[in-house]
């Protein structure tokens, strides 16, 4: 059975189609990432899946329940970390957790233990009696993750979990996400506009742009869409000709005199190229290689970089918003 099944899900805001007939499924226990620039429809999709917005068209089931017909069943099964902070800033970390637990029907010692366990999990137990408005952006995010786990959700939604955070905190949060999947066997749906985040964390990735899913698969499958690793070579004494070997799939000579080789796996191919050069007594002046990134995939599919356009300025705005939150 699938944790999330989505069929032709569509959301219109007036003339704007924010999400356009989207289809996908998320298997139980996997991390599924929605990768795309800001404004692609990621948050709108999350809002529909978490029952906060009604779809204009199409259908979605989460944990086996229809998001429109059985919203309260869905709400019981899911945990969410919103893109924008949703903590009560006037209350302490513990009180925020406590209120969440109470609303979800937890009580007494069991609730207390869960709160303390989870605060330990996100390394905030020292700060549990501090008022949230004194927290840094990273601490607030960690607290939100802990809070979303109190009621033991089957499916966790993370909307841009590391946006605006410093690299150290990002690495931390990635660690938590990996551990949640491993230790708690949780299904995780996350959205991101960071390539490396999707690459690092997700079992499967859907690339979304202008409200449509334009590609879907594992990171490797997506990268294979644009083909090979590429090795660039430059030899001394004017050796400019194509090298032939069974591991070399294609070969091109670039205008600057470098040779471009398409190979299955650059890390394995480079030593072979070295051996070959020694045999033929060619002298290598330069070697470099390029593995396709998800950024290349996005570029290949859409003709633009994921973070160009207003994506970048949006990200900056959000960072500012988050700073203000501190």
């Amino acid at each position: 059975m699938y944790a999330i099944e989505v069929e032709n899900l569509t959301k219109r805001f007036g003339d704007l189609i924010a999400v356009d007939h989207v289809n996908f499924t998320v298997k139980k226990g996997e991390i599924f990432a929605f990768l795309g620039p800001n404004g692609a429809g990621k948050t709108t999709t999350i809002n529909m899946l978490t029952t906060l917005l009604k779809p204009t068209e199409g259908r979605a089931t989460v944990a086996g329940y229809d998001v429109v017909k059985e919203p309260s069943e869905v709400r019981k099964k899911i945990g969410i970390v919103f893109q924008d902070p949703s903590l009560d800033r006037e209350l302490t970390a513990y009180e925020n957790m406590y209120i969440h637990g109470k609303i979800y029907g937890y009580n007494g010692i069991k609730l207390k233990e869960r709160i303390n366990d989870l605060l330990k999990f996100v390394e905030l137990e020292r700060f549990k009696d501090k008022v949230v408005k004194t927290f840094s952006g990273g601490m607030a995010r960690r607290l939100e993750i802990a809070r979303a786990l109190i009621h033991e959700p089957e499916i966790l939604f993370l909307d841009e979990p590391t946006i605006g955070l410093d690299p150290h905190t990002r690495a931390h949060i990635w660690e938590y996400i990996k551990r949640m999947k491993k230790e708690r066997d949780m299904t995780i749906f996350l959205t991101t506009h960071y390539m490396d985040e999707a690459d690092q964390l997700a079992d499967r990735i859907a690339i979304i742009d202008h409200g449509k899913i334009i590609a879907e698969g594992t990171a490797d499958e997506l990268k294979r869409l644009i083909g090979n690793d590429v090795v660039y070579l430059k030899f001394t004494n004017g050796m400019i000709e194509c090298i032939k070997a069974e591991f070399i799939k294609d070969c091109k000579i670039l205008p600057d005199g470098r040779i471009e080789l398409g190979v299955e796996n650059a890390s394995e191919a480079i030593p072979k190229i070295f051996e070959l050069s020694i045999q033929k007594s060619w002298k290598i002046l330069e070697v470099s290689y390029h593995k396709p990134t998800l950024n290349d995939v996005f570029l290949y599919l859409t003709g633009r970089e994921i973070r160009e356009e207003n994506g970048e300025s949006f990200a900056i705005l959000k960072t500012v918003a988050r700073r203000r939150f501190r």
Binding site: D84, H100, Y104, G105
Partner: peptide, 13 residues
């Protein structure tokens, strides 16, 4: 403004 409303709206209570 500060998002806490969403936390309530998405709760099963």
């Amino acid at each position: 403004q500060f998002g806490f409303l969403k936390e309530i709206l998405v709760a099963p209570a």
